[in-house]
């Protein structure tokens, strides 16, 4: 797709995203009329206090959280794919999420009941563990020297290892099982403004750093030796990009738990439209990621109302078959 038509595509996508955000904000279990929801955006004086809380205190931050985290996860996913030169690289598949779950499980079992700002001990432990896992994967990657097939297997073994420890912990501490399983499936049911205040700036900074490295990303995804010959300081760029993307993942995990496959589906689907050039891929991925996650969360919220389906389950439901599709397509 050429520059101009991609530009139009992005505008169309942005319009759809705004419409979706508006729809998602106005719809919900609470019986609030459409006009009231619209009015609450501008003028709160004439409305019921409880409704105001639901609209402005719960739905609005939730919509924003979905968009920000969806954007962050897809941009981070596309970075992982470039760094590991593999279309299937994604936080969930590389084992980062399992590391995060293990961290959360440990925190829940050993009752790290403190709160740092709005983040529970469990979510902080999860963020820390996801960063540790990234570092571990990076070392493994250096060790296997660019062999990305092996890297995915390393990811799977990290994943299995962490989840088996988590299972072990659960079986010993059966009383905590509900908290842990709930945690391991990402959800926006606890979204609030305070979380937005943290996730939004951090994810935006990470995304901007990544955007500014679009040429490095192109070069590195072609090959490290090639990138070096173009003049890219490969190691330094890799560390910066990895830091930015794992920060995004860590913040996303801390705020809404594990949401898999967004970082896999979006860059791969968008590449079919935009091509591999990161200058075109990143902005479209950011928009599409925001759209997908908001869509999944809205579906999860509305489809089986009044009970709610966690967004992590919805994305996995779409993502797992898509993963299979990419593998089959690659042959």
């Amino acid at each position: 797709m050429g520059h101009r038509s991609l530009y139009k595509f992005n505008i169309g996508l942005a319009c759809f995203l705004i419409a979706l955000a508006f729809f998602s904000y106005t719809i919900g279990v609470a019986d609030i009329s459409f006009t009231d929801a619209v009015r609450a955006l501008f003028d709160t004086s004439a409305l019921d206090g409880a409704h105001i809380t639901i609209l402005r205190g719960i739905r609005l931050p939730r919509v924003i959280s979905c968009m920000v985290i969806g954007m962050g996860l897809s941009v981070a996913g596309s970075v992982f794919q470039a760094l590991f030169k593999n279309q299937l690289a994604e936080p969930f598949i590389l084992g980062i999420s399992s590391g995060a779950s293990l961290g959360a499980a440990l925190a829940i079992i050993y009752s790290f009941d403190f709160y740092f700002y709005v983040f529970s001990g469990a979510s902080i432990a999860a963020a820390v563990f996801s960063v540790i896992t990234v570092i571990f994967i990076l070392f493994a990657y250096k060790l296997v020297r660019h062999n990305t097939g092996t890297l995915l297997l390393i990811g799977s073994s990290i994943s299995l290892f962490c989840s088996s420890i988590t299972t072990l912990l659960i079986s010993i501490h059966a009383d905590k099982i509900k908290n842990i399983t709930q945690w391991s499936i990402g959800s926006f049911s606890n979204a609030g403004w305070q979380k937005v205040y943290v996730t939004l700036p951090i994810i935006f900074i990470g995304v901007i750093i990544i955007f500014s490295f679009h040429r490095e990303l192109n070069a590195i995804s072609v090959g490290e030796s090639e990138a070096k010959s173009f003049g890219v300081p490969v190691e330094k760029s890799t560390y910066i990009l990895l830091l930015a993307s794992s920060l995004i993942v860590a913040v996303a995990v801390a705020s809404s738990g594990i949401i898999g496959f967004v970082g896999l589906i979006i860059p791969n689907a968008v590449r079919m439209v935009s091509g591999a050039d990161f200058k075109k891929l990143l902005p479209t991925s950011a928009l599409a990621g925001a759209t997908l996650l908001l869509f999944c969360d809205t579906v999860g919220r509305v489809a089986f109302a009044p009970s709610e389906m966690p967004v992590g389950a919805v994305t996995a439901l779409i993502g797992a078959p898509f993963f299979l599709y990419i593998i089959l397509k690659r042959g």
């Binding site: 192109n218 090959g223 173009f230 590449r271 091509g275 050039d277």
Partner: peptide
């Protein structure tokens, strides 16, 4: 090359 780069994308990397 593992990704869907076009020929001009690759040349411009130079």
């Amino acid at each position: 090359i593992a990704f869907e780069f076009t020929a001009i994308d690759v040349v411009l990397m130079g």
